[in-house]
Structure formats: structure tokens, C-alpha cells
Nucleic acid binder design. Structure first.
Lengths: 283, 283
DNA sequence: TTTATTCATCAATATAGCTGATTAAAATAG
DNA sequence: CTATTTTAATCAGCTATATTGATGAATAAA
């Protein structure tokens, strides 16, 4: 009633909008004023105008209504069949700004659905899907097929070969297999010690690390060179904190395939369905 | 009722806490379940346990109660006589981390009072107090007394003389009036072109700027040297981005006096009173 | 001045919410 | 396994609250 009176500009108009009689609003506001211990409207003129106290308390009242509205929206969404939560497991290399956009969009479309994001290695993600620890996975393509899961190719993620600006490779006139050979390469390594063989290895001196962000730090400190997802190094290359190597044997950036992973048997609700489809346009 | 049932663990216990009869709670929850379109509790066992839907909706319900609580607190505070707003005008050089602590404390103690912070020069602040554009000011001491305002000395703000690490002054073995002379000094300048004469001037090459933050940037870029509030340069000196000059003619850091300014005639509410007192312990 | 609105007041009424008693089921104790 | 206690659902009756509808005073527009 309070906010409606402010919006409508008069008690009578608010009453009409609320489908009640004018005296109901008049008494309702009077009761609220007693409860809050403050005069909300100044009635000295024809139309009631907010007092300073009323103006201040209006913000708090609107905040209450906003929360009530969110409760109701959540209830309607749950009633419609939206899932209570969706657990998305992904390779940390896939956490790009474009993905953030998709997740923001998800939060708007499914306000009642809790979104849990889990970062893990490809093999761990497949295990999580199988054991119902995650609902949807996004991984680098695994060759082997699996009876329990549905895989869906969604695109390629470009990788750049990078080193620190102080690294000796920067001086090389041409990057060939031959002159990459003597330098330390840093390669991603899953938690289960089952190294992904998708990353090409060109060196005998290989260092393993378990996250792309860790690798980026190591490359920046000059320990070695590595292949890293484009979106993780683009800004750094611009800022001169990393140097992009262009191997002569790669005409285009090396881009491994990416796929989504879903359990075959489990039911798919509207939120999970939307998210799985949205991810198809990620790359 | 919903949150109370969750807290209490049973409808009967919740009823006792709410001062109602068990059947009231039982029906109340049943009605809420109809309204929300979801079963909140699983009654198959002796004590009702939250369903997954109930768990999810509980968060939203608690958010509603939180907002209602804040509305009620604000109303009580306004009823007690707390001001609806306090406008604090201060020299930007006085915006220190210690001040932030005081303002956070203020927000907790006076949740219904809007705090407006205005950054301005000393002379502008005094004008704002006189013209009722601000309730409380904090400025560097002004010599002249004024019949309309109450001034209260609260302490001294230490200033450091600083230059950029690349500045030629850094090489000087001793900083004397004589060797400061040929270098550009940057000095604060109010908006009304009435330069504060509290800042000592040692150079014929003087550049004026209208905020300490602007001066800091200029000093960092190597344009000249300046006196700046200690808290604004301490971190920068630590990080090596600024260099502290220790003039031989200053045994201690130069520390101009600071005062609070209040209008003499206007009434002082609890929030304004608290803030004026809290500022006395700032320096 | 007349007319149309506006808000406050108040008795009458409708209704949402509460009570108190009862029943059935589940946990606890013996 | 039974007796006791505790718990929740149901329902008729009651109560407090919200709402109505009528009235009067005040204000703005015609």
C-alpha cells in the first residue's frame, strides 16, 4: 500500500489500483504510520506528499518488496520444474570472459537454480559426471567412447605458444622443432597422474603443472615456455608481460577440440538443457 | 513461521516460541506451501525435515525477514531522533584508512542515517557549512575566526616531502632550502583561487593543482616535488614508486593542524554528534 | 458558486488467522 | 512388545483484523 500510494500519488488512486476501497488504504497507511512510529505522508495539501521520514523509509519498504518478489519468482520457477541446482565442471583453461557472459545470462533466466562451478582436469570431470558429483562437464576431447556418458563436440580452443619476454627463445629468428628442443616446456598434468596426451610435447625437459593459471605464472617467471589458451594470455601479450612464439610448423594456432559431457541416464531439466545448449555457442 | 520451524526443528516447538498454538503453525505452513506451490517439509518421519525445495526457498525467506528487520530498525532509529542524513565535507587529503573505519562504524550505529561525503577545499567547506550545504566539515585550520561557525582543533596531519625516484633531488646529499629552490614544487590550490597559505613554499617554480591525488600523480610522473599527507604516500614510498625527501630544516615531518567545523546555530542530532566526536580521535 | 476529488472517521461486515479438542502416527521408555 | 510421550493433521468455532460503505470536511478545478 505504501509504495503504491507513492507511485500513484494519492490514496484513492492507489486504492483503485489495489482493487480496494479508499478508506482501506487510508486506514492501512495510518496503521503503518503507527507501527513505524513515523508520519509517512504530509496530508496538509490535496494530494499526500512524502515526508522526509517517509522518503527515507520508502527505500527500506521497497527493499522488502523486492525480496518478497524474488521469493515468489523463485517459487514459481521451482513449481515450473526448474532444477534446484546445476553443477558445471570444467577445465580451468575454459573459464573465459565469454563463459562468464553465459553464466550471467543463466543466473537471470534461472534465478531459483543454484549454479555450482567446479574446476578439474578432463579425466576428473568425466569421473564426476559418472558418479553424480556434477551434472554437466566441459572438457578437452577424450578419444575413448564411454557407454555411460554423452559427449558433444562444441568447437576448438586456440592455444598460443608463449614465453617470458626475457626468455632466450625470444631472440630466435625462427621457431622450429629443432630449436624448441633444448628449452624447458611446461605441460598440464591432471590430478590422477594421467597426463593428457593432447598437448604436443616438443622437448625432453618437461615440467608438469596442474592448472593453466599456475603454468602462466611459471612462464611469466621465465622457467620455460608453454602452450596456453588464447584468452588467458592475450592481455598479457598486449601488455608485454608475455611473448608469443609463432612456430614455423604451425600455420594456424594449435586448437584442441572441446566437448560437453552429460550422463546418459540422468534426467535433464530446463536449466541444464539451456546451459548445455548455450555452451555449444561458446567457441 | 517457516524460518522458526526450521530453527526449532518441529512445528510444536516453533508454536511455543511464537506464542501460538500448534495447529496455527501447522495450518500456517500448509497455507504457505499452497501459496508457494512447493512442499517445504517432509512429514514422513516424526520431526518435519526440509525438502530440497524447502532448503532452497528458505534462503529467499530469510532474505525477506532480513529486509523487514532492517525496515523496523530504521523506523526505530528515526523514531529515536536519529537524523535522516548527515553531510560530511572534507579536504580530500584527510580521506585516510582510519577515517574509513570511523565511517563504517557510523554506518553500523546509525543504519537509518544516510551519510553523504563531499570532498572540497577548506574555504569551500566553510562556505558549505554556512549555507547549509553540509552539516560537518573537516579542514585545515583557518586563522580567522567566524561568528557563524564552531571550529574545534582535532590534531595534526603529518606531511612528507616526496619526489619521484627518477627526480634529480634524489641524488642530493642534503635537502636544504637552497637546493630545493631550483626545482618545481607542486602546491594545493582551492577552487576559489584563494591559495591556502598553510603549505610552505620554497621554490620560485610553483605548479598549482586542486587535489592531493592529482598532485601525487604529478609527482610520480616526475614533474616536481611536493608535500603530501603521509597516509597518501606511505605505501608508494614502500613500493619504491615515490621517494621521501628529508629536508634538513625539518626535524619532524611538517604537520599542519586540522579542525572540525560546525554551524553554530543549527541543532545537532545524535548521529552528527557521534561523528563529530569520533573525528576528534582521528589523528 | 458549483462540481469533482481528495482524505479521515466510524459503524458494520467479512475473512483470514487462531484456538482448542480430537485423532493418528511416530519416537521413546520400560 | 506394550505403555507413554510427543508430534502433526484436521475441523468446528471464535477472534482480531482488514475491509467496506456511508458520511463529512477540505481542496482544487470549472
Amino acid at each position: 500500500m505504501f509504495t503504491e500510494c507513492v507511485k500513484a500519488g494519492s490514496f484513492s488512486a492507489a486504492a483503485r489500483k489495489l482493487g480496494k476501497v479508499q478508506s482501506a488504504v487510508s486506514q492501512g497507511i495510518a496503521n503503518l504510520e503507527i507501527d513505524l512510529g513515523a508520519e509517512l505522508f504530509d496530508r496538509s495539501s490535496r494530494k499526500p506528499v512524502l515526508t522526509p521520514e517517509g522518503t527515507r523509509l520508502l527505500y527500506y519498504a521497497q527493499a522488502v518488496l523486492q525480496q518478497v518478489n524474488e521469493l515468489e519468482i523463485a517459487a514459481r520457477k521451482i513449481e515450473q520444474g526448474d532444477e534446484l541446482q546445476v553443477r558445471l565442471a570444467l577445465e580451468d583453461g575454459l573459464l573465459s570472459p565469454r563463459l562468464s557472459d553465459i553464466l550471467n545470462c543463466f543466473a537471470k533466466l534461472f534465478p531459483a537454480t543454484r549454479l555450482e562451478i567446479i574446476s578439474a582436469s578432463t579425466s576428473a570431470i568425466i569421473q564426476m559426471i559418472k558418479r553424480d558429483k556434477a551434472d554437466l562437464g566441459m572438457t578437452f576431447c577424450d578419444q575413448e567412447l564411454d557407454a555411460e556418458i554423452n559427449q558433444c563436440f562444441i568447437g576448438n580452443l586456440p592455444f598460443y605458444a608463449v614465453c617470458s619476454p626475457e626468455h632466450p627463445l625470444r631472440e630466435a629468428t625462427e621457431i622450429t622443432l629443432h630449436n624448441l628442443f633444448p628449452h624447458r616446456q611446461i605441460v598440464l598434468h591432471g590430478q590422477e597422474r594421467t597426463r593428457l596426451d593432447l598437448v604436443p610435447e616438443f622437448s625432453t625437459h618437461i615440467i608438469y603443472a596442474d592448472s593453466f593459471l599456475a603454468i602462466r605464472e611459471m612462464v611469466r617467471s621465465g622457467i620455460g615456455w608453454s602452450y596456453l589458451p588464447k584468452h588467458l594470455v592475450e592481455e598479457e601479450i598486449q601488455a608485454g608481460r608475455l611473448y608469443k612464439l609463432t612456430p614455423s610448423f604451425d600455420s594456424k594456432p594449435w586448437s584442441p577440440p572441446v566437448e560437453t559431457v552429460l550422463a546418459k541416464d540422468r534426467s535433464i531439466g530446463p536449466a541444464l538443457n539451456w546451459l548445455a545448449n548455450a555452451l555449444k555457442g561458446l567457441l
